[in-house]
Write a protein that binds this DNA or RNA. Structure first.
Lengths: 176, 176
DNA sequence: ACCTGAACACCGTTCAAGT
DNA sequence: ACCTGAACACCGTTCAAGT
């Protein structure tokens, strides 16, 4: 199977689409596909061949952020006990959610979350498993449960109360 | 100020709009305004004068359900201690959410929830206050926090795990 | 091989014209 | 006083035609 080199213009088009989408998302939380195509200077067809769904585009836009979030889980586990690591990781998620609301939108129920190997779910699983071994976090909690609970971060009103609500959630996941 | 009798056709139009919307929501969770107008046999203008936003229409459709939910709070408090009443009330909410997903959509961030006198928030406040007096529920929890946490019920994947996630939430709201 | 952009099917919402 | 429905401004998505 011969490796086929993608045309140079195709490569730059794809990169420009992602860059433009990222910029559009800094001003508003909406992302009209036609607006992305126009701002990127490509036809709608080009946009859709690169990213068949908006979820796919969002996943690409926030890939770097998600990678950082996922990578921070083992780092925190190396420096703290599992319960503290989990609590700190939740704060990381909240910080990302505050700055870039779209991260959560991409995360929940989309390509990222529904994919076979959702990296975020993997990070949560790791933290939960450590807490279970330690005996500080409830053994009957799955990554799915945590993802559902974190969904509140995507609501606009969440910003002010995020920290407090995370405390309540964390309190609920600890063993009594 | 003389009471003005609304025209008979106007009254029946309004009732038919609500009835048709309710029926449409049993099959799908979407509610296109034009589809409502067409199914109700009225012009779009009539629909919009009665219900300026979709939220307003949803609020009317689910008014009866919300009333039942709100009324159940004092009933539960009369028969159980505050913590048990709160737990049972949460189950009531989950049951409604399972059957009619739209109740939650109408509840969260919409006319119902954002209104000056959100009845749901009132019911939650009442339950929380009783739990605080009793010393079983955390004093630093507000109705807003609970509403944010309950938002997960509107997600399609929530159905199977709703009961378990509610346990986690309840666990987090209790005093240690 | 990749691209463009007209075109289609759908929204929500408004408002002039009717009764 | 209330209603109708054409019309407008927007979506997402497809696909024939180009290079």
């Amino acid at each position: 199977m011969a490796e086929r080199r993608t045309r140079a213009d195709a490569v730059s088009n794809r990169a420009r689409i992602v860059q433009v989408a990222r910029e559009l998302l800094t001003s508003t939380s909406e992302l009209p596909m036609n607006a992305v195509a126009k701002a990127a200077g490509v036809g709608q067809g080009t946009l859709y061949r690169n990213f068949p769904t908006r979820e796919a585009l969002l996943a690409e836009v926030y890939k770097a952020d998600v990678d950082v979030l996922v990578a921070s889980a083992p780092d925190l586990l190396a420096q703290h006990d599992a319960a503290a690591a989990f609590r700190l990781w939740l704060d990381n998620v909240a910080d990302y959610a505050r700055v870039k609301r779209g991260v959560l939108a991409a995360l929940e129920g989309g390509e990222l979350a529904a994919g076979h190997h959702d990296p975020i779910a993997g990070a949560i699983d790791r933290l939960l498993a450590a807490g279970r071994d330690e005996g500080t976090l409830r053994a009957d909690v799955g990554a799915q449960d945590v993802l559902l609970l974190l969904g509140f971060l995507s609501r606009p009103e969440a910003a002010e109360r995020a920290h407090h609500v995370l405390d309540l959630i964390f309190n609920g996941l600890r063993v009594r």
